[in-house]
Amino acid sequence: MATYSTNEFKAGLKLLIDGDPYNILENEYVKPGKGQAFNRVRLRNLKTGRVLERTFKSGDTCEGADVVDTELQYLYTDGEFWHFMNPETFEQIAAGSTAMADAAQWLKGEETCIVTLWNGVPMAVQPPIFVTLQITDCEPGVRGDTVTGATKPAKVETGATVKVPLFVNQGETIKVDTRTGGYMSRVKE
């Protein structure tokens, strides 16, 4: 794997530190006018999600982490693993619940997800930003109430619960923003 000099540090670069893959969030170059330069770096551990700060002597090198984002199609879950397929090679990869995190609750099958692989193993899964899901369970709708902004919980087909406006009915299909988990609109079939 490539090594990177501190000169190449920038947000988004993936480094291997103490055996774990990290993503650079912020890189600040600090240098006294006549002294030693340092790179002050904020990094996120891609395995644990924890953020840490580390100072590198400028000019030092750090091993890169073989981390790539790939677009994979979600197939199904067996309850323990979530199975994805590379649509070009048909190669299948299984992600565990840690890598899936909140993504699992938005997926019903065939969505294209961004899967972050470290040495070929899924570390994180980003679902599509917008998904359309059918409401399987909610209180009956209140006709005409489109302005009050009041909401009610609705359960969607993937099992997630979304706050929806009062006029939305069970059986309807809605568009959800997976970044916030928020209701966007109704979708006409």
Binding site: V30, P32, G35, Q36, F38, T55, F56, K57, D60
Partner: peptide
């Protein structure tokens, strides 16, 4: 800063200063 042996005394002072 990784291996502390690679920094000289003035480098450490620069680190604290900055």
């Amino acid at each position: 800063v990784g291996d502390p042996e690679r920094l000289e005394r003035d480098d450490w002072l620069d680190l604290l200063l900055s």
